Simulated assay, not measured.
Amino acid sequence: MEFSIGTCAKIDQVSMVKQAEDLGVTHFGVGEGPLLFSDPYQFLALAARETSTIKLGTMVTNPLTRIAPVTANSMATLNALAPGRTYLGIGTANNALRSMGNRTAKITELMHAIEVSRDLMAGKRTVHKWLGQEREVEFLDKESGFYNVKDHIPIWVAAGGPRGLAEAVKYADAIVYCLGPNPDMIKLIRTRLDEAVANAGRAPGSVKLVSLSWFYQLENGETWEDGVTNGFGSGPISSCITNSGLMNNHRDVLGDSIVDASITAAQQYLGDPTAADQPHYLDTWAKYLRGLDPKHRPIITKELVDYWCLYGSPAELREKTSLMLESGVDITQVFLSNPFTAQRDIDNIGRSILAHA
């Protein structure tokens, strides 16, 4: 079973990647947030030296905080340290840009960055549009070991909405989507992905579906509230933010209850942009992925937790993981939303899920 773990890049916790590898985790990604986390590429470079089989990547970068040639260079450099073990996770961004008070990337910006990065990482010359100019770019010394453009670097795209999905499948090796153990939501995204792949003229099954869930293993006597408090904290709200638009267009499949709950949670978290007393964006994101921010506790309901989170007893975790795979997920992925408890969670994943795969 392919199983991926993502978490915040915390530079003094690189050893958790080796821990994950030893337990059978196949992919490990770290997020990018210039005001929030350690730099992902420094983290991944250190992890590359401590591991030998696990695949390493961003989860996710974006086309605005780093321009495409810089991203391609970082990935090709990592690929020199871990040949054939790297993947580029990229999207329009959520926390990385919103936490700086800026808009997320446009689909056109994302697609151009993917095109340029893909070509450069394959050792090709390509055209980069930047600062109102179009210029040819190419890695200039591909044989001296500065970077590795011989081993393919898969591209994982975090895309939402029909347009984003349709564009992303033209280039992606995998699509990353916020999904929990709900068959209706998984089957909806699987169907839309397969249709987009066919429309793009690509072979069936050529683009994998990677789920993104929020993880916590319940200990004896614990309830879903303990999962929020001691585990994924405010994480499920991110799934609401990224999915509410698409969900609103598929009420007939998903049901009004979960759609309304997800939209409400997203709105309550982000605040009313027209309100005079709107919180400062730095305050909004100050405790993002640091466990539970107590002010968000009323937003997180059991309905949202059940829908977006991979949580429960060891037996329930195995059952839910199997359900997700049977419903159309190719690679199960969890994001550990609290770096301070990530090592505990990785150990639980290894013992409760992967040891029985």
Rank of each mutant, 00 (worst) to 15 (best):
F232W: 02
L246P: 03
I263A: 14
M100K: 13
A158G: 13
S262I: 07
E138A: 15
D226I: 07
E134N: 10
T229R: 13
Q133W: 11
D12V: 00
N220W: 04
R163C: 03
F28T: 10
D39H: 13
T7F: 07
T264R: 14
G312Q: 03
V149G: 05
L193T: 02
G29C: 13
R297L: 12
N243Y: 05
R202G: 00
E115C: 10
R85S: 08
S52N: 14
K124C: 05
F139H: 09
M324C: 09
K124S: 09
A45S: 14
L46Y: 04
V25H: 06
D119Y: 06
V70I: 15
H296P: 07
P279Y: 05
H280D: 14
G255L: 00
S327C: 10
P183S: 08
R297D: 02
M75W: 03
A45L: 04
G255S: 06
A266D: 06
L46A: 14
D141I: 02
Q267M: 12
R192W: 06
L23W: 11
V253I: 11
A196F: 00
D173Y: 11
G164M: 05
D277R: 10
N148C: 11
E219P: 00
G145F: 08
K106F: 12
L131I: 07
W224K: 01
S206I: 08
M111K: 10
A68Y: 06
M100I: 07
D330W: 01
T284I: 15
L282I: 11
A96C: 11
T284V: 15
D256C: 06
D141F: 01
F146A: 01
D347N: 12
V157Y: 09
W156L: 13
H296W: 10
E136H: 09
L354T: 04
V329E: 01
T65A: 10
G291N: 02
W308E: 08
I67E: 14
M247F: 15
R251N: 08
L292T: 05
V149K: 03
W285V: 03
F43H: 07
Y288G: 01
E326M: 01
A342D: 05
V25M: 07
G245N: 11
I349L: 09
S352M: 02
E326W: 01
G91C: 02
I241T: 10
F340R: 14
W224C: 07
K170H: 15
Y147L: 15
K295W: 12
G33A: 14
N220F: 06
A80V: 04
S238P: 07
A174R: 12
R98K: 15
S337K: 04
K187P: 00
N220C: 03
I155T: 11
K124P: 03
Y177N: 01
R98Y: 14
V157T: 13
L120T: 10
N338A: 11
S117Y: 08
A20H: 04
V30K: 09
T301I: 13
A198I: 06
W224I: 10
V207Q: 02
